[in-house]
Amino acid sequence: KKSYVLIKVKNPKTKETHTIVVPEENLEEVLKALASQPNVKVVDIERFP
């Protein structure tokens, strides 16, 4: 059974918020990819039960 993680990201320029759902096993690479985006800020990470 896969567990999923909900990542909320915000664009500081446009103030838009997006929610991305990723499998927990991919969380680290997704966070690394997001960290390299200049106008993306991770605001929240939630685990799915």
Rank of each mutant, 00 (worst) to 15 (best):
K1R: 08
K2A: 07
S3Q: 11
S3W: 15
S3L: 12
Y4I: 07
Y4T: 04
Y4L: 14
L6I: 15
L6S: 13
I7T: 00
I7P: 00
I7E: 00
K8H: 15
K8P: 00
K8E: 05
V9H: 02
V9S: 01
K10H: 15
K10V: 15
P12M: 15
P12H: 15
P12V: 15
K13W: 12
K13R: 12
K13Y: 12
K13V: 14
T14F: 04
T14R: 04
K15Q: 13
K15E: 10
E16Y: 07
E16A: 09
T17K: 05
T17N: 04
H18N: 06
H18S: 08
T19Y: 13
T19N: 07
T19W: 14
T19F: 14
I20P: 00
I20W: 08
I20Q: 02
V21W: 14
V21C: 14
V21Q: 05
V21R: 08
V21F: 10
V22W: 03
P23R: 10
P23T: 11
P23Q: 10
P23C: 14
E24K: 04
E24F: 09
E25N: 05
N26Q: 13
N26S: 10
N26C: 14
L27I: 04
L27K: 02
L27C: 03
E28M: 09
E28P: 06
E28Y: 09
E28T: 07
E28N: 11
E28C: 13
E29I: 07
E29S: 08
E29D: 08
V30L: 07
V30E: 03
V30T: 07
V30R: 02
V30Y: 06
V30D: 00
L31V: 02
L31F: 02
L31R: 01
L31T: 01
L31W: 02
K32C: 08
A33K: 10
A33L: 14
A33G: 06
A33S: 10
L34Y: 03
L34G: 00
L34R: 00
A35L: 14
S36Y: 06
S36E: 11
S36G: 11
S36N: 11
Q37C: 14
Q37V: 09
Q37R: 11
Q37G: 03
P38V: 08
P38G: 12
N39E: 08
N39D: 12
V40E: 03
V40R: 05
V40W: 14
K41D: 10
K41R: 10
V42M: 03
V42L: 05
V42W: 02
V42S: 01
V42Q: 01
V43S: 03
D44Y: 14
D44C: 12
D44I: 12
D44G: 15
D44E: 12
D44F: 15
I45Y: 05
I45F: 05
I45G: 01
E46T: 14
E46F: 09
E46L: 15
E46R: 15
F48Y: 12
F48L: 12
F48G: 06
P49S: 06
P49Y: 05
